[in-house]
Every structure is written in structure tokens, then in C-alpha cells.
């Protein structure tokens, strides 16, 4: 780790000014991802701008439109256990609690969670090529060991996966990300926040340089009736998702009037298929229809060898999770499938 400077921002504007002051500055929130990347010599900021003490980022408050605003600095654990989140947005609560470990969730912030980087082995090893870390150097994952890698939205350049659980729920809930930057404040719909790798795999998202995430807004509709988060991984206790699914429904008897299905662990961003969701709307909530929807979601899915199983697994997971969303009480802690 290189020597570095350290400053505490006193408010949002100050944070944006401080971070723009030189090239190699970086915000630090919980540090659970940044410090790891630093120790691995993947990033080496010259100056840290600490945003942990900013009151403006540390609240969860109800919005006039009936929605809920989650401060970017609020810890993942505090968000998951917040009474309004638990009651009105239980999908989000479940998804957060399926991620990482209790200790990490106690440190990790909502803003940091959106910006965590891929867990691709090759990205994490500065001694080997990686187009995300070192554009143009190549991608050893494609012909290497790619069990954890993407099956949807991949590019020639990159098959990395965005690893967050929380963001899969946020995608399903149509959250909005509020940011402040040198050019002022703006709001980014969640589906436009993260991006596919294309030929710029170095960019994970559409946040502009020196922009600070201030909060995440949840719309009024929380889907507290029918929801489920399912996470499949190699170790139950904690591991990144090989496939995860967030599902919510609004039901009219047994007819679906609103469906949301987002996948994690399969692409460079939380994956939603509006085609599949539209297909389900107006249909009976049945295993058969869920299977057809799964096929639509996975249209064009492509494996790279070790991750071929994800295509089959994702289909089964979508179906199971849709069934679980009909009976949300069947979910087990840690988002394991129900008995």
C-alpha cells in the first residue's frame, strides 16, 4: 500500500470539491471493497476523501411521493433491518441479508455496494491481463476458469459479473440513484446506472468522474405481498452468487398484474428482461408461465465452458423463485431455497 493523504469531507459540496482537486483521489465509505483492491495493488489512491461522517448521507427518510430515500452512507445492515424496509420493501431486506457476512454488512454502505467491483479472479490479479483493469491487455477468463462469469450481455472484451445482491433487488424495485457532482445533482434510474461491458469494460457504471452518490430512492410500490430473493452459490453461509433471482408480483387473484424479475450473477449488471415481465402480465401465476418467462429472460444466454451450467440453473432458479414469491414465507435466511 502506498502512502496516502486523508481528508474528511464536511458536506456534500465539500466532498465533491475535494475529490475533484486532484487525479488520484477516492471516496472512502465502509472500505470493504476499496481496501481489498488497494492491498491487491489494483487501485492506489493518493488521497482518500472520507464520507463516513456526512450527516446528509446517513438517513433513511420517507418521501412525499410515498417512497423511501436510503442515504448512501447508511450501512447495509442498518438498511436491511430498518422497520420500513423490512415491512414495505422486504425483497430489499432479504437481498441485502443474502450478501456477504454480518461483519461486512455492518461496515458496507449503500453507496459503496452499488460501486463494488467484479470478483473476477483475473481482475483481482494485477499480474495477469484483464481488459477491465488494464484496457486492451486481454481477457484470460474466456478461455480460463469461468465458473463465476457472465452468460448474458457479455462482450468480446469482458465476461465479468457485477457481484452485488442488494442491487438485484434495487433493479427489480425500479430504484433511482441520486448523485451530486461538479456539474450539479442528477438522478439516474437504476436500469441506467450499471452498464454492459461492450468495448469499455473498464467502466462498470454511468457515474461520472467525481460524482458522489448521495442517496437511493425507492418508489412507493414495495411489493410487500409477493416477493422472493433466491441466491445460489457454492457455500451457503457466504459466497458471491453464481445465480440469484429477485422476483416480485402484484396479483389479481391468480392473475399477475405486475411482474418484476431481476437476475444477479449472470451479467455485468443486474439483469432484467422487460419482454419477459410483459409476457407474464395478465397471465396466470403458474409454473408453466414462469418457465416460458425464464426462456425469454435467458434468450441469447451463452456459456464459456465452466459456466455453461448457469443457463440451466438460472432457468430452474427463476421458476423456483417465482413459486416462492407466491408464498414468500417459504424463503429461508440467507436466501436459501425453501424446504
Amino acid at each position: 500500500m502506498n502512502n496516502f493523504g486523508y481528508k474528511q469531507a464536511s458536506n456534500i459540496d465539500d466532498a465533491v470539491t475535494l475529490v475533484a482537486a486532484s487525479e488520484k483521489t477516492s471516496f472512502i465509505a465502509g472500505g470493504t471493497n476499496l481496501i481489498d483492491l488497494w492491498k491487491y495493488n489494483i487501485t492506489n489512491p493518493a488521497e482518500l476523501i472520507d464520507i463516513n461522517h456526512l450527516n446528509e448521507l446517513s438517513n433513511i427518510e420517507q418521501l412525499e411521493n410515498g417512497g423511501l430515500r436510503l442515504g448512501a452512507g447508511v450501512k447495509n445492515a442498518d438498511t436491511a433491518y430498518h422497520p420500513i424496509v423490512e415491512q414495505k420493501y422486504p425483497l430489499l431486506s432479504k437481498a441485502i441479508l443474502a450478501g456477504a457476512s454480518a461483519q461486512i454488512r455492518n461496515m458496507a454502505t449503500n453507496g459503496g455496494n452499488l460501486l463494488q467491483r467484479t470478483r473476477c479472479y483475473y481482475f483481482y490479479d494485477p499480474e495477469v491481463p484483464c481488459n477491465k483493469r488494464n484496457p486492451g491487455s486481454g481477457c484470460p477468463a474466456k478461455d480460463g476458469y469461468n465458473r463465476m462469469h457472465a452468460i448474458l450481455g457479455t462482450s468480446e472484451q469482458c465476461i465479468a459479473v457485477f457481484p452485488s445482491d442488494m442491487c438485484v433487488a434495487l433493479a427489480a424495485l425500479d430504484a433511482v440513484v441520486n448523485v451530486s457532482g461538479p456539474e450539479g445533482a442528477r438522478s439516474i434510474p437504476f436500469k441506467e446506472f450499471h452498464r454492459l461491458p461492450g468495448d469499455r469494460p473498464d467502466l462498470d457504471n454511468n457515474l461520472k468522474k467525481n460524482e458522489l452518490i448521495t442517496s437511493i430512492d425507492l418508489p412507493e410500490k414495495g411489493f410487500e405481498g409477493n416477493y422472493s430473493y433466491l441466491k445460489l452459490r457454492d457455500r451457503h453461509s457466504y459466497a458471491f452468487a453464481l445465480v440469484s433471482v429477485a422476483t416480485t408480483f402484484t396479483l389479481d387473484g391468480s392473475i399477475i398484474s405486475d411482474a418484476r424479475i431481476a437476475l444477479g450473477g449472470v451479467a455485468h449488471q443486474p439483469w432484467r428482461s422487460f419482454e419477459a415481465e410483459q409476457f407474464l402480465e395478465g397471465k396466470t401465476a403458474s409454473e408453466e408461465n414462469f418457465a416460458l418467462a425464464a426462456d425469454l429472460i435467458l434468450k441469447g444466454a451463452k456459456g464459456f465452458g465452466d459456466n455453461d451450467f448457469k443457463i440451466k440453473l438460472a432457468k430452474k432458479a427463476i421458476i423456483r423463485n417465482c413459486l416462492m414469491a407466491l408464498r414468500p414465507e417459504t424463503q429461508l435466511p440467507g436466501a436459501q431455497p425453501a424446504a
Binding site: 490479479d125 495477469v128 457454492d234 457455500r235 453461509s237 457466504y238
Partner: peptide
């Protein structure tokens, strides 16, 4: 291809914990 181990941390080298 690279001749090296790639999951060289306890996040990716899985060992069971209590849960």
C-alpha cells in the same frame, strides 16, 4: 493457461463456517 492458482483468498477458496 497461466500456470497459476487463481482463487488465492478466503473469499474464493471456500471453507465451511458455522452456518
Amino acid at each position: 493457461n497461466l500456470g497459476k492458482y487463481i482463487n488465492t483468498n478466503l473469499g474464493e477458496y471456500h471453507i465451511p463456517v458455522h452456518a
